[in-house]
């Protein structure tokens, strides 16, 4: 049971505590007391609320845009690294789901007995490739040293993306969100470029109702040999030059 004098002593310290202006030993006293004294804990809460309103006194000043971008990049990276189900959704050319779908089709048409062995073997190979690619991506992420932001343009103005890369390496990962779906026959294509040259990389289409997609890219040269990275909308996957329809653009 708390004594009257102890309450009085703590009450004298509460304002200093709320302002973070106590010496460590006084602070410790308040911590100990309020951990088991509800009235003092309540008193401390309302005092802290008053103190925190002092935050309004400083004149607001708009911080540079880079502050926001850096926080969002940090969040995006953290979410990406800690969301295993998302991490596996890479826009690599092969699809495990396609293999499963093919198997279902074979079974439905009665051909499964003939092809099952071959199909199972192919699926096993695909699964091994998938595991290897995911392991490779995770290894690459562990080595990420640089993040480059891309900004959405035109009809993709709300899209944002980051390139996770390591200088000296030609492997990188593009994490994109809010990219709008395309019309039939169109595809997104990733490009890296510098003065006088453009190199087309992977093509992809964002899955419906999935706001984030990861695209692994592997240009011929290390990423830091290029000056720009962009995502364009193309009518053919084999386009040699980027179209004028840029969806995302960023410096490297």
């Amino acid at each position: 049971m708390k004594t009257h004098s102890e309450h009085e002593h703590i009450e004298e310290l509460i304002e200093g505590y709320a302002l973070d202006a106590l010496e460590p030993e006084e602070r410790s006293l308040v911590d100990q007391h309020t951990s088991s004294c509800s009235p003092c804990r309540k008193q401390l809460r309302v005092t802290e609320e008053t103190v925190h309103m002092l935050g309004f006194v400083a004149a607001p000043i708009t911080p540079p845009v880079r502050c926001k971008l850096k926080v969002l990049e940090k969040i995006e990276r953290e979410q990406f690294l800690h969301t295993p189900t998302r991490r596996s959704r890479t826009a690599t050319p092969f699809s495990t789901w396609a293999t499963v779908a093919a198997l279902v089709l074979f079974m439905a048409t009665g051909m499964w007995g003939v092809s099952l062995q071959r199909q199972m073997s192919r699926m096993s190979t695909d699964m091994t490739r998938a595991r290897n690619e995911i392991a490779e991506l995770e290894g690459m992420l562990a080595e990420v040293q640089e993040i480059r932001a891309l900004k959405g343009e035109g009809q993709s103005q709300y899209a944002v993306a980051n390139t996770f890369m390591k200088p000296g390496s030609n492997k990188a990962l593009l994490v994109i969100r809010n990219l709008p779906p395309l019309s039939a026959g169109q595809t997104y294509k990733v490009w890296v470029a510098r003065e006088g040259m453009e190199e087309g990389l992977t093509t992809f289409n964002p899955p419906p109702a999935d706001d984030t997609i990861q695209v692994a890219i592997e240009p011929r040269e290390p990423m830091d040999h290029y000056k720009w990275i962009m995502v364009t909308i193309e009518n053919t996957q084999s386009a040699d030059h980027p179209s004028q329809q840029q969806a995302l653009f960023g410096d490297l």
């Binding site: 935050g55 309004f56 400083a58 004149a59 607001p60 000043i61 708009t62 911080p63 540079p64 880079r66 502050c67 926001k68 850096k70 926080v71 940090k74 969040i75």
Partner: peptide
């Protein structure tokens, strides 16, 4: 962000450090 940057700038007195503070504070909010 403007209110937090204003508070950080007034408290820390250095623009660069205040910018870092804004990033860290909002990261903690997240």
């Amino acid at each position: 962000a403007a209110a937090v940057f204003g508070l950080a700038l007034r408290t820390l007195g250095d623009r660069q450090i205040a910018e870092e503070a804004v990033q860290e504070i909002f990261w903690r909010v997240w």
